[in-house]
């Protein structure tokens, strides 16, 4: 099992198998995004309370979900880094942080653009909004730490430790709407037995959420593969690979 894992995560082997993963997740992202946009902009009803602003949900919620999903991927890479010191995992931490930070910012800003017409304010210091803002700062911290050392591997370990400590914020974001009296609405989808959203709104939301996740993996592989070439530039497999493409 371990020898299999080791081979699976060896830089050279990773570079080979991730090529097709990058390709297929890109294709999936484009397909899902087209269908998702069709439903969310053209083929879904306006809400009886929110009117057309309900369409903001189809980008806001997937971005917010991805901000947490990306953190969990980063945390998995961090744990692998701390235990096995696998190079590919070390690289993944910094790449997840960059993508995750961009989607956390997107979730916050689209939330503000919904909050202004619906709540009457761009920002309130509500538990959900505040914990999501903390997530953004955690991502910034991980990005800063990854690049703060001359030795990239030391940087990755420091970033991994911050990532693991920051996991505590994820359940806080998730349960913030239940633990505190927040202005932000409660969960409507994660109650799987009885989701309180109508299928006409649930379908565009779930398709967009999947599209965002496919996009995340496509981008993560694209970024990680490039960084891997840089770190492994002195190995024979990278030299051979680059010679072939010249």
């Amino acid at each position: 099992m371990f020898t299999f894992l080791h081979k699976f995560a060896s830089p050279q082997y990773f570079y080979a198998w991730s090529a097709s993963w990058q390709k297929w997740s890109s294709i999936l992202a484009v397909l899902l995004m087209s269908v998702g946009l069709y439903y969310s902009l053209l083929n879904s009803p306006a809400d009886y309370q929110q009117g057309e602003t309900v369409r903001i949900m189809y980008v806001h919620v997937p971005a917010a979900w991805l901000s947490m999903f990306g953190y969990m991927v980063m945390a998995s890479a961090a744990i692998v880094t701390l235990i096995w010191r696998i190079k590919v995992a070390e690289i993944m931490i910094g790449q997840c942080a960059v993508i995750g930070a961009s989607f956390t910012a997107l979730a916050l800003i689209t939330g503000m653009l919904w909050g202004k017409p619906m709540w009457g304010a761009y920002w309130v210091w509500d538990a959900r909004l505040t914990s999501e803002l903390v997530l953004l700062f955690l991502y910034f911290g991980v990005i800063a730490l990854s690049g703060a050392f001359d030795d990239e591997r030391a940087g990755a370990r420091a970033a991994a430790i911050l990532t693991v400590v920051g996991i505590v914020n994820i359940p806080i974001i998730h349960y913030s709407v239940e633990w505190w009296n927040t202005l932000h609405q409660g969960p409507t989808v994660s109650k799987f037995d009885s989701p309180s959203a109508h299928p006409s709104m649930l379908i565009p939301l779930l398709i967009m959420a999947l599209a965002f996740k496919a996009y995340f993996f496509a981008l993560l592989f694209k970024r990680a593969r490039a960084e891997l070439l840089l770190r492994e530039r002195n190995t024979s497999w990278v030299k051979a690979l680059l010679k072939d493409t010249e």
Partner: peptide, 24 residues
């Protein structure tokens, strides 16, 4: 027109497109 919320709705979709493209 988006029921009068054009700025907010299109603003969000524009920003989303911006983040997706910029990342790429």
């Amino acid at each position: 027109h988006m029921g009068g919320y054009a700025f907010y709705v299109w603003g969000c979709y524009g920003l989303t497109a911006g983040v997706l493209l910029a990342n790429l």
